[in-house]
Nucleic acid binder design. Structure first.
Lengths: 201, 201
DNA sequence: GTGCCAGTGTGACTTTATCACTGAACTGAG
DNA sequence: CTCAGTTCAGTGATAAAGTCACACTGGCAC
């Protein structure tokens, strides 16, 4: 079902209009929502599921910048939509998701006619900037073993992920993750197996 | 003089209105435009000069996130303005600057009534997200010696800066900067003196 | 001058990144 | 099932970067 809180805020008539011209996309896990360099043809509103946004540097290394979940707005798309530049990052569907595509014309109309819609967009932008600022600090100054433990503790055991994927989450090298995990296993905090991490206690 | 391209785009009548309720601030070097935790009472438009935005992590380390110059918009303020949260970063005036303060009410009105104003705001947001994404990649993956040289080569010799300040620019430790600079001096690329770096050639 | 202090230099050590390689675990074809 | 190919994980060696501790020094205030 098409349900997103930013659409709820619209006046009844505008909402009706909107619901007609919006198409809902079903996104299976692994699907690429957009790639680096691609152009943007609409603003995706996340209805359900989960999508990660990551970027690959010139060095070839990648890092996950943030995630989008139900009721999020793909803020990154707005910039591409307005300036016509291509995406700098890529978005990969993690959990079975649904997203509503708002075409450029409708976006302009909603921005023009609804203060609540504008507020939603601005808030979303603000949160995203905040996320990225925190990430910069994290990457620049925090210790990798702390960040790894924190990341693990935010999940529910067992965690299905390869060391390489975990390295991309943290923006480091696979070997570093392997060594730190091995250290945690020695301390009895985790149990390791291929593509899987079990948290202990 | 109050001149900012986003104001130029306004329809004549709105522009007249705007110019009346906007107050211009003179900002001497060293002045703090806003501090972390402070609340925001308007959107600053940069008319001239230069301001750096930096953030201090829990660790106490700081890093420069980006700079604002003439004709820029302090995008970071919009989020604070709309959500009411405090700033996460601080803004420090570097060169003698002027900024126009757009109060909340006027901002809302401009967003409501001018598509060009909205476009300007969105573009500014997009650029800022882009900047931060590039910074994340830079901090996570690039070598410090390269980043240092690049930073130096973007300035005009002599550069008046302490090693500590340069460390904040790059998000690293003072000792690292000192050692890398010493290495550059040994290679004959720079000449070092207290609070000053001369580029050679 | 003398004392003070921000700024700088450097050794010792830890943490993280990179490179190179090994072996183990899974997959699919036959 | 067996074998070959591929992905994933472990690890040593080495280099780069971060941390801690402390010595030195240039310039300003008195």
């Amino acid at each position: 079902m098409l349900h997103h809180s930013i659409l709820e805020t619209l006046p009844r008539e505008l909402q009706k209009d909107a619901l007609e011209s919006i198409q809902v996309m079903r996104l299976p896990p692994g699907k690429i929502l957009f790639r680096a360099g691609e152009h943007c043809h609409g603003l995706p509103l996340m209805l359900s599921g989960g999508v990660k946004v990551q970027m690959t540097g010139i060095s070839g290394n990648s890092i996950v910048l943030y995630r989008m979940g139900a009721d999020d707005i793909c803020t990154l798309s707005i910039g591409c939509l307005m300036t016509g530049y291509g995406y700098r990052a890529e978005a990969i569907v993690e959990d079975e998701s649904e997203a509503a595509m708002i075409p450029r014309g409708l976006f302009d109309r909603l921005m023009d006619q609804s203060a609540a819609f504008r507020l939603g967009i601005m808030e979303s932008y603000g949160r995203r900037l905040d996320d990225l600022m925190l990430l910069v600090e994290e990457v620049a100054f925090r210790r990798m073993d702390e960040r790894l433990e924190e990341w693990l503790n935010l999940r529910r055991s067992p965690i299905h992920i390869t060391h390489q994927e975990l390295a991309v989450e943290l923006g480091t090298a696979r070997e570093v993750v392997s060594r730190l995990l091995k250290e945690l296993e020695r301390k009895g905090r985790v149990r390791l197996s291929r593509g899987r991490i079990d948290l202990i206690e």
